[in-house]
Simulated scan of single mutants.
Amino acid sequence: MSLDNLTVKPHDRLTEALADELDGVGTLIRTRMASEHAPRIPEVTAHLVEAGGKRVRPIMTLAAAKICGYEGPYHVHLAATVEFIHTATLLHDDVVDGSGQRRGRPAANLLWDNKSSVLVGDYLFARSFQLMTEAGRLDVLKVLSNASAVIAEGEVLQLTAAQNLSTTEEVYLQVVRGKTAALFSAATQVGAMVADAPDEIVEAFYTYGDALGVSFQIADDILDFAGDAAKTGKNIGDDFRERKLTLPLIKAIAAGGDADRDFWVRTIEKGKQEDGDLDHAVALLKKYDAIEQTRIEALAWSEKAKQALKAVPQGELTDMLSELADYVVERLH
């Protein structure tokens, strides 16, 4: 089913169900992104925060806490923490990748400069650590600080693996688990932890977030070649132009012959790209069925996420999280 034909998308239903808590998250973010001495910080942050992002990660924290019966205030702090970490990584990513768009708008580093984006990202990371300590939970602090380190590690690993044609699917998965899935899994995990849920439920939420994050990133990698820029808010072919070895490319390279490999060496390893190369790359992906094979993997990870939810308390919010796992791959139909 096309997402355009869905009456109410699952993240919209979650947003409505968690409206009061999300208002609290928004208020906290606006308060904590303020700076008395550096007005550029709220300017740059607001450009991203107010750009209409779906806030999927903080929603996951809030939902997990409520599913586990939490009635205190600190799930809002943790949800804001997760959003600050995410926003910081976006600011840094756009500098590293040289991206022109983010959420359908010009990237912050284009409107200001690379220095501002990096330093404001650093500020938001620092703010996130201030926020996460306010819950007074060392176990929660450990999960979120570990996730922050894993995210940075994943980004660095991607730098070394991105233009290396010998990069395997295992290395790709390690990158994805770092740069994307780590924050998804931490977001749901700490929501359950702050509610003092049993270990098996905390683990189930971790598994859900991890699998959802992997599925989400694989779907994004497919849409870079087969998506609609108007809907994704990203330029089609950015990963190819940035010479990122994503899963569709890894599969196509493994299936191709010497002539195809020469093309990938020139365009990905050496970065000598010419007019028409993106079209040729897409043609090779289709020739070797790489897009469809990658889509099957995204669906499998989505199913793993849904299966994990069977171990958590059942109810309307749990159903919505299950539908969210379907939603990330329905974008591929």
Rank of each mutant, 00 (worst) to 15 (best):
D258L: 14
Y206M: 00
K272V: 14
G233L: 01
G191Q: 07
L183S: 05
T188L: 09
K231L: 03
K251L: 15
S185I: 01
E269S: 15
D239S: 04
A281H: 02
D277N: 08
Y206R: 07
Q217A: 13
G271T: 13
I253D: 08
T246L: 07
I253G: 12
G257W: 12
G213A: 07
E242F: 10
G213C: 05
L212S: 12
L245A: 10
G237I: 10
A254Q: 14
N235I: 13
F216L: 04
D258I: 14
V190L: 00
A219T: 15
S215K: 13
I201G: 06
A182K: 10
E269Y: 09
Y206C: 05
A229C: 11
P248H: 04
A204L: 09
L183R: 04
F225P: 00
T180N: 04
D228K: 14
L223F: 06
V194Y: 05
Q189A: 00
F184V: 11
D220K: 12
H280M: 04
E242M: 10
S185K: 08
A259T: 13
A226L: 01
P248G: 08
G271E: 11
M193H: 00
W264H: 14
D221M: 13
A281I: 12
E269P: 12
V194K: 00
G271H: 14
A281C: 12
G227L: 13
Q273V: 06
